[in-house]
């Protein structure tokens, strides 16, 4: 569904990505693992276009989307749950969700999408008139995922969704991610530092190090490989 080939990008004159390539199969959870600061977030942001690619090719459903601006990619059904949430904290929960349905096609399905996210996250329905900033950390993370679902995505990229959450909530977030795949049939590209939980949820895994892909394989295969776990994942 998504294919990234030899991407280079970075910020200013600092190169972060050194030609990583990866592929995300339709209906799968693909996980991108690796320690902090190796370019995982940059890779997601480059795929979505908020960081400009300097070199390489991004193909989505057989179409070259490398030069497209972010909003055009959202139109095509790609979205990102960004690290640090980036909610509209002064708007209500409901307004945040409506913002997710900003693009024309998403707007036409807004009613159904709302039903879907309220069914997935009943707590958001209870708090729909509250300001997003007044929610707890876990609820904010749910809202960020819900807002992304409102864009009617086919491919959803999640950047550190379990970061700074209490252990109990981490389990809930991963449960949600697996439900997105199983119940809605979404394709998921997941960036995480929580390697153990990611390996359990993922179908296929890439390990990134210093802006490059160092290893890849089926989730079970990577989990079973002692070398891999010791060298890159520290578990």
């Amino acid at each position: 569904m998504l294919k990234v080939e030899n991407i280079e990008s970075g910020y200013g004159s600092m190169q972060v990505l050194w030609q990583p390539s990866l592929e995300v199969k339709k209906g799968s959870i693909t996980s991108l693992l690796g320690p902090n600061g190796v370019g995982k977030s940059t890779l997601l942001r480059t795929i979505l276009g908020s960081v400009e690619p300097w070199h390489g090719r991004i193909t989505y459903e057989g179409r070259d989307i490398t030069p497209l601006p972010t909003h055009k990619k959202v139109d095509l059904g790609i979205t990102l749950v960004p690290e640090g949430k980036h909610l509209f904290v002064e708007m209500t929960v409901h307004e945040n969700l409506i913002m997710g349905a900003y693009r024309k096609e998403a707007f036409q399905h807004m009613h159904d999408s709302l039903k879907l996210v309220y069914a997935l996250f009943p707590v958001l329905k209870e708090r729909d008139k509250q300001k997003a900033g007044s929610l707890s950390g876990g609820e904010q993370q749910m809202l960020t995922i819900a807002r992304a679902l409102m864009t009617k995505p086919k491919l959803i990229m999640l950047d550190e969704p379990s970061q700074v959450l209490a252990p109990k909530l981490v389990g809930e977030v991963f449960e949600t991610i697996e439900r997105l795949k199983a119940e809605i049939g979404l394709t998921i590209l997941l960036v995480e530092q929580n390697a153990e939980a990611s390996l359990k949820a993922a179908d296929y895994v890439y390990i990134m190090h210093e802006g490059r892909i160092k290893a890849e394989g089926g989730a079970e295969e990577i989990a079973a490989s002692r070398d891999m776990r010791e060298a890159y994942l520290g578990i």
Binding site: S50, H71, H86, F88, M91, R103, A106, M150, T151
Partner: peptide, 25 residues
């Protein structure tokens, strides 16, 4: 209005607006 709401979203969080598909530029 749609355009006005898009402006508000950019004021609040331009990164968040981008992932919602707002043409921030």
């Amino acid at each position: 209005t749609r355009a006005g709401t898009a402006m508000r979203s950019v004021v609040e969080d331009s990164e968040g607006a981008k992932v919602c598909g707002v043409n921030v530029e």
